[in-house]
Design a protein around this nucleic acid. Structure first.
Lengths: 176, 176
DNA sequence: GTTTGCATGTAAACGGTTACATGATTGG
DNA sequence: CCAATCATGTAACCGTTTACATGCAAAC
């Protein structure tokens, strides 16, 4: 999913500035499945405007750059839906962690156990974040995405905790 | 994880040609967590050779391009291990599927149920592939990666199957 | 007084994919 | 006869990230 499509999608839920779109990516649990930076969002919105898929109105502000509030146009909405009707690109889970674990026999045991522990901590934080996002009513899609995220992080966590003893560094025992 | 590091990692397990490295990515369950194309592998191997991290020997073949068999050098091995000791980039799960599901209220029900079914089929195929790869003895890392993959696909599958009825298209019933 | 939040944008660099070029062999 | 396997490589293109530029206000 390219940034253009993602921006269109967010705009189907209501008007927003580039800045707000970025914030939505980083919060609300979206960040587990999609991402984008300012450097790609602003150019994407400009291009969408040129193509007539979104419209802009500038809201003047004191002592700040104008807020440029984007709205999706009917053409944009059609284009967005059309892109979801086409065959979707496959999911990809790129995991430096799993890659590194493939070579755990080459690493010092302390490094391996700290990698595992770090990943566990990360997954727990992600899970907690997904659980606490009860702020506002959710669309069916948001509930689905939330549940999916929770299911996966929970499974990862359970697996990692079951494996953890195997990769425990000897020093951990000696330190007691 | 960039392609250079991935190539180094594979070469720690034994010598290989660019072609064989690519094949390893696509099979053996590695493909669930890393990926690379010829267009990036060959240049990466050339650069690694220039930097002295790998060495090449050409094996002449009849009526085919020479096989260029790469071996990791001691310097390459050190560099590889050093890269695994540095803080790892975070995992990223990019999911066009979950993104599309966020907007399931905008899509025709038939499309939604076919997306879900498609994803279920895909996950089942992935799971089956991970289960059947009993061909050769595995390193502890490979066993870990395998188990991790299975745990995640299994969780995704269970969740999807539990949600499926919610997204069932009315036509499915009418068709009976 | 420094960091965070608001707010937009550009340019260079990066890493990667896709498509192309070449070509024999084997299996369906 | 066509597709797949083996085998390497280049070039154009693509989307994105990173770093930079600007600047005020509020919170800590």
């Amino acid at each position: 999913m390219d940034v253009r499509t993602i921006c269109l999608g967010i705009l189907t839920r209501g008007d927003a500035t580039g800045y707000e779109i970025k914030r939505l990516f980083d919060e609300d649990g979206y960040q587990h499945f999609v991402e984008a930076s300012f450097g790609s969002i602003y150019p994407a919105l400009n291009r969408l405007t040129e193509e007539g898929l979104v419209s802009v109105r500038a809201e003047a502000q004191e002592k700040r750059p104008d807020r440029k509030v984007y709205s999706i146009t009917p053409a944009g909405r059609s284009a967005f839906i059309a892109s979801l009707l086409k065959p979707l690109p496959e999911d990809r889970h790129r995991s430096p962690f799993v890659f590194a674990m493939l070579f755990c026999d080459l690493l010092p045991p302390g490094r391996v156990s700290s990698m595992v522990d770090g990943y566990i901590a990360q997954a727990e934080a992600n899970l907690a974040q997904l659980n606490e996002s009860n702020t506002r009513p959710k669309t069916p899609g948001e509930e689905f995405a939330n549940g999916f995220g929770r299911a996966i992080y929970q499974a990862a966590l359970t697996f990692l905790k079951s494996q953890r003893p195997r990769f425990e560094a000897p020093e951990t025992v000696a330190a007691e």
